[in-house]
């Protein structure tokens, strides 16, 4: 077996796994920053533990797990959850719902183990982790499982380091702005996974995710602008300036 062959397997597993790890990190970072790190990390840790046990227990038989069914179920849940969050962020940014009560609820929720955060992180890590396992099995076929696993481990380590670096800058962003972004992210991921589960052929494949998240962001920004414009004449602050 030549080094070029082994190197190609490591690189292929590294690049393919990198995409999946980044997708999982995006959700864990988003949920952790908006709802509290404790629950997000417990959820992510539980996901890793679940995957480890699953891998040790069934190993290569994992290839037979119907990934599309799993993607469809998780996609539907993410669409329902993410769009609910995005709707609330739009209504708050547009001034329809007050910010003060939300801040109190947020503070209360971050003080204890938060089920939303825990479950969302767990689902993201489990689904993306399963895809990494499939990548390793696929690229490491013909006796090259160890180099393929090495590529995946390198990608995972790189993504975890990036996540630790991004944690502090994210904490400075206002809460509703983050919830707005997280709503768009989860909605985008949800639609993507529903499409994958229904075996849609996405234009640009995984890059379609960026288009979906960008699309939800644009739609949400337009909605906020429309609400503010229609609410402006009725607002007491605006009335004072325009008798």
């Amino acid at each position: 077996m030549s080094w070029a062959h082994v190197g190609t397997v490591i690189l292929a597993a590294f690049l393919a796994s990198l995409v999946e790890f980044v997708e999982a990190l995006t959700i864990v970072l988003a949920v952790g920053t908006t709802r509290g790190w404790r629950s997000a990390l417990i959820g992510a840790g539980a996901g890793v533990l679940f995957l480890t046990v699953l891998t040790l227990a069934v190993g290569p038989a994992l290839q037979r797990v119907p990934l599309s069914s799993l993607q469809l179920v998780i996609g539907v849940l993410l669409v329902l959850f993410g769009m609910r969050w995005l709707r609330k962020a739009i209504l708050r940014a547009g001034g329809v719902i007050g910010l003060r009560d939300e801040a109190a609820i947020y503070a209360k929720e971050t003080a204890r183990v938060d089920r939303v955060s825990l479950v969302t992180s767990f689902k993201a890590v489990t689904l993306e982790g399963l895809e990494v396992i499939f990548v390793v099995i696929a690229t490491g076929a013909r006796g090259l499982l160890v180099p393929a696993a090495l590529g995946a481990v390198l990608a995972g380590s790189l993504v975890i380091l990036a996540g630790v670096g991004l944690r502090r800058p994210l904490a400075r962003v206002p809460e509703n702005t983050l919830k707005f972004a997280v709503g768009a992210l989860l909605s985008g991921f949800g639609v993507f996974w529903v499409g994958e589960g229904l075996r849609y052929r996405w234009p640009g494949e995984d890059l379609a995710l960026l288009g979906l998240v960008g699309g939800f962001t644009v739609i949400a920004l337009l909605a906020v602008a429309a609400i503010r414009r229609s609410a402006a004449p009725a607002s007491p602050v605006q009335v004072r300036g325009h008798p």
Partner: peptide, 15 residues
Amino acid sequence: LLAAVLLENVRRTAQ
């Protein structure tokens, strides 16, 4: 479809 559902609901709630 989902974007239309979101926009319609936000408009109705705001009204």
